[in-house]
Design a protein around this nucleic acid. Sequence first.
DNA 1: CCCACTTAAAGTCACGTCAACCCTAAGTAA
DNA 2: TTACTTAGGGTTGACGTGACTTTAAGTGGG
Lengths: 230, 230
Amino acid sequence: MTMHASIDQRVSLAVSTVIFALRQHPETGLATLWLPLVRRIREPYEGQWALPGGPLEADEDLAASARHTLERTTGLTPNYLEQLYAFGNVDRSPDDRVVSIVYWALVQPHEVARAVDGENVEWFVADELPPLAFDHSAIVDYALTRLRAKITYTPIAHAFLPPEFTLADLRAVHEAVLRTTLDPANFRRQALATKTLVPTGTCLQGTSHRPPALFRFEARAPIPAPEERR
Amino acid sequence: MTMHASIDQRVSLAVSTVIFALRQHPETGLATLWLPLVRRIREPYEGQWALPGGPLEADEDLAASARHTLERTTGLTPNYLEQLYAFGNVDRSPDDRVVSIVYWALVQPHEVARAVDGENVEWFVADELPPLAFDHSAIVDYALTRLRAKITYTPIAHAFLPPEFTLADLRAVHEAVLRTTLDPANFRRQALATKTLVPTGTCLQGTSHRPPALFRFEARAPIPAPEERR
DNA sequence: CCCACTTAAAGTCACGTCAACCCTAAGTAA
DNA sequence: TTACTTAGGGTTGACGTGACTTTAAGTGGG
């Protein structure tokens, strides 16, 4: 027989989200992965940075809860949202017992512009984060590896982009996420081989030199979340 | 502002597990994927089959909770355990609100023998399940796709096998899980290419014909769960 | 108007992987 | 010894991919 804590010690359920977006790096000027964090306004970890999240309401699905807290705390509407993992170790919060169901999200650049950015919400370069509250540093780490793995075998990069884009844009997303440089010719071949790209005419005069072709992502059947499979 | 249910309507947290094991199919005689289900002894869905699970105790980590309920309800000790997904749609339980954090597990054949198999616990062929309680049918579906995907790119098949086995055994596991036949020669090549197999002498007289070599899985560093990454 | 420059986009080649298959080795049962 | 069965190694061709080259299509400067 295992020992159990007293009955009135409750487990509370929170939903948090790791949000990724692309922005220019202030020093290098390159497109880089950023993510918004919120400052904690109460103990524990008061004043420290943490993932946006909140308690699960009784009338909300999990993904809906993630969207709502996202909107409430950061003003962002994600273009892609997927469950990451449920973190529930006993010691992950110093006082009470909290199980966090964590999502990860991708937002488009124009969303970043209109996002909240104030004293209690701030954007950070994904690889240069301050120390975070709770186990949130490990969570971000895991979300990063998931994003980097998934972008190599599914076309989620489009979630960072406007509906119409060039192959150079698409490649820039991959390069920013994976922190590498990719051969333009080979990247083109692989991208076109997926059959998810539809050409939509050529770019009418860019800044200089040969204008690139524009593409759109074909609206393939998205991969359903486990809840909504048939 | 969104409407919320009254404060005293609580969300309860359960941990359930999809357990896979290999057994002989009664008709074909082939190794097949089976899973144990437990009969519900109270409403809702009283009398129907469901995944083994139970409420999360305040002093248990999530994986530990999965192990405990597994042991308590089916007597099984899994050889492999991984988090699958957190299911929490509002309508997944008719009365109360339940969020289930679901794990999936693999058990060895000798465990199956000593497992409970009575009126309230029964084994079923994974592809021929009765209607299950709640959304458990969809959950099993998802667990199956995860298992089938993961066995192709990680050496989890060993979790079904005793410490020492032949390449034919290993191939039989893959064939049972994927429901295909695999070319023995090509399978051998791929299996040995992973470098995770260590030869441990030859089989001393099997039933007939040429005796196969025996192998053991090398104790590589296992992939850490997201909670315990460094 | 020609030319230097830049990026887009297509093509070439070497190499590694893998499925299909063929063949030999090593044992058992008659 | 022979027939039979499974273990296990080898060969071939299709395919994907990284490194690299070449051509196309624009710009701006003299």
